[in-house]
Design a protein around this nucleic acid. Sequence first.
DNA 1: AGATAAGCGAGACGGTACGTCACGTCTTGGT
DNA 2: ACCAAGACGTGACGTACCGTCTCGCTTATCT
Lengths: 240, 240, 240, 240
Amino acid sequence: MRFVPAGMVCAMAAPSAPTPPPDGPSPGAAGGPSAHRRGRPRSAAADRAILHATRATLVEVGWNRLTMSRVATRAGVAKTTLYRRWTSKSELVLDAVAALFDELELPDGGSLRADVEGVVLSFAALLQRPETKTSLMAVIAESTCDDGLRARVREAIVERQKRLVLDGRARAQSRGELPPDAPGSEAESARVVDLIFDVIAGAVVHRSLVSDAAVDAAWTRRFTTLLLDGLAAASAPERP
Amino acid sequence: MRFVPAGMVCAMAAPSAPTPPPDGPSPGAAGGPSAHRRGRPRSAAADRAILHATRATLVEVGWNRLTMSRVATRAGVAKTTLYRRWTSKSELVLDAVAALFDELELPDGGSLRADVEGVVLSFAALLQRPETKTSLMAVIAESTCDDGLRARVREAIVERQKRLVLDGRARAQSRGELPPDAPGSEAESARVVDLIFDVIAGAVVHRSLVSDAAVDAAWTRRFTTLLLDGLAAASAPERP
Amino acid sequence: MRFVPAGMVCAMAAPSAPTPPPDGPSPGAAGGPSAHRRGRPRSAAADRAILHATRATLVEVGWNRLTMSRVATRAGVAKTTLYRRWTSKSELVLDAVAALFDELELPDGGSLRADVEGVVLSFAALLQRPETKTSLMAVIAESTCDDGLRARVREAIVERQKRLVLDGRARAQSRGELPPDAPGSEAESARVVDLIFDVIAGAVVHRSLVSDAAVDAAWTRRFTTLLLDGLAAASAPERP
Amino acid sequence: MRFVPAGMVCAMAAPSAPTPPPDGPSPGAAGGPSAHRRGRPRSAAADRAILHATRATLVEVGWNRLTMSRVATRAGVAKTTLYRRWTSKSELVLDAVAALFDELELPDGGSLRADVEGVVLSFAALLQRPETKTSLMAVIAESTCDDGLRARVREAIVERQKRLVLDGRARAQSRGELPPDAPGSEAESARVVDLIFDVIAGAVVHRSLVSDAAVDAAWTRRFTTLLLDGLAAASAPERP
DNA sequence: AGATAAGCGAGACGGTACGTCACGTCTTGGT
DNA sequence: ACCAAGACGTGACGTACCGTCTCGCTTATCT
């Protein structure tokens, strides 16, 4: 399995940070010590104001009525300033919302089952927040016909949040609930992590946003049972 | 479990058929056999032409550049005729695409595992078709801030396609792979069906459209293993 | 001058009566005693209801928002019933409004001056009524690019209301304020009547609707002075 | 009488020039010499192109088939650019047509009678031009239910063209055909000017567009006789 | 009496234009 | 260079009426 230490996660995620998104990195970010392009540097305050205004606007009016103009006005910024940083509403919202996913945590519940149930419930709670509820699917929809955006979604959300699966597994291994990684099975491990991630994220999203039913304690318990018992079998290298 | 014979499923779904969608039912739908309310009846040919044009336009230009005008022109119909039947692009596309979901079948693979793998693969294939790929997520995104549309999605896709889960289970029971329904456990059964549906649909959609990875034979086999083994545990009334 | 007795005026006006306008006359109107085409005869009640509804709608919403549909609905009649009788909104309103002009009278004020002032004031009052204010100019505007409509305007309003000038002149002659018609000067007389009509109608309409100023007693007195004194000169066969 | 020198008339009329019409004044109009409020200034070339295109379109297709879209397209300008300057077709056409009225002149005919006949004939000729024939009445019709438009009509046409009456009177006075203004009779003078204007404009418009008869030399001579002779009486401060 | 024919209320139909909105780019003057 | 402001060309929106048509009915005259 591909082991990703915390620091590396951050490094990996850096390119999707708000400031530099569209093409070139923002002056102070990574281009070298005094590689100050030339002329007036971009305002960092504007970056912050824009992302904050984006989230606030999502809460107030939702994805559909969020427009670049509206965000610009709310942020006290000119439209051109937005377009200098993000090429489209989707990319802007992606960056604004991805930050919320980074707040997901995996508090130690004492057992693998508790950890899974905890992350399922907190993920479901995140999906019910107005900022994410209306915009996550919209960004994903947009990404189905925009390769660049799809890659950014993968970077900014999918790959980043696999850390939750990895952390949970590491913790379970340290508790002895799961066997330690067998050497040489990294590729196999990664496939299992991917599967688990797709199953958890997919099921919770589908239940919340498509079936439009509550992700409550009962459903979560039942789903976790299915997952953990199925996992035992699916993790076995190959079926007999 | 709520037992729904095929015929009843169709009858239940009939009100979501294209003709009457927005508000009032189409003449022949309900309210009496020849209760031709009054005035000129709506053209059934127009309905057909519109839905066909919608799918064709989705294939040609995708969701984003599909406009009501373009569909109307392609169908040889006035824009007002579209708006008389569907209040928005989302509802129109929902009806046009839901018909494709109805073509999903559960061919008898000889075993529960084969049936599951078959439906997963054919569902994934459907999600790769250009009509669905670009539009399904868009409709779901729209439905997150439109109660009426969300209900229509549930009616036209979610509830309708649970037939696949029901059929698969019935077939497995007749083969003896699953125990017959215990009397008095209808509610419990329905919950399991819902769970399975969310897990299958969610995982396949997430893998295809979010993780942007292939739903190939290997992933399908692994996923099916997880599901079937997990199912055995999750179906037990309550964990010990 | 072309002398037109009252009866003849009515006869002349008959073709512009509401019922038969577009092409063929209404059954009972003039086509002969029992020349009843065939089939169901047109409803006279519908005619009345439509013209009444037209005036009422003009009062309520004005010319711009008066539509054929709205009139039909208000009259409790189908749109086709309107179109069977009037080919356009302009013709319908013309007929509805022309009836109001027929209510203008020339009460005997005891002198030519009093008669002129009286007709000027009552014409101005008519132009201030909401039905006429918003629609008269609109119909005339429409008539500038519709020969048929222009002819109908002339028939239904212009020629019909020249009776007021004729009556006034006859009365003034009987009082001895004006000399009797010289034999053989009919054409000359008609030209003077036309001139007077254009001057009175034109000045009052322009003052009311274009200059947007009140046609009050002071203006009317001054205008009448101009007219009567000018008339004396203009009526002289030719200037010295 | 309110004496308005030519220069002052122009200055007074300037605010109704095309550029700033709907609400706020154009940058250079008022509020300081270089008070370029902020942002990109409006294109003066667009103004010119639009008004020219409006007149050309009126000639080609008339008022009824003149649409904002068509004008925009012909002017090579976006529809929004039109709406930024004029809130409606009526206001646009008013400005486009008012410019034609400014071309009316009062060439010196050597006598008051010749001057009046000259202006009547040239006004009638203007009313026969396709740009004005189909649109002047339409704008006036519109103005009967739109206070703002009515005020603009008064500013852009009525008050502006009274200069012709004023010029004619001044010239007649300098020839000795009319007595010079009595001091202290300004208000009285203004009333006479208004009356003359309404009579001339009203009669010519009515003859041309309503009675649908030619404003030829004979009619003009007769009308001028009526006017001048009547005028002598009407100008006397009060009738005996 | 039955056939024939036109009128009628209702409302769907293919169109055209509307006036608005958001887009992403551009042109100002000022920092 | 960047910034705030805002005008620009573009294109789609959803609505309003237009005038025509297709329904099932009703109401008359003419066989």
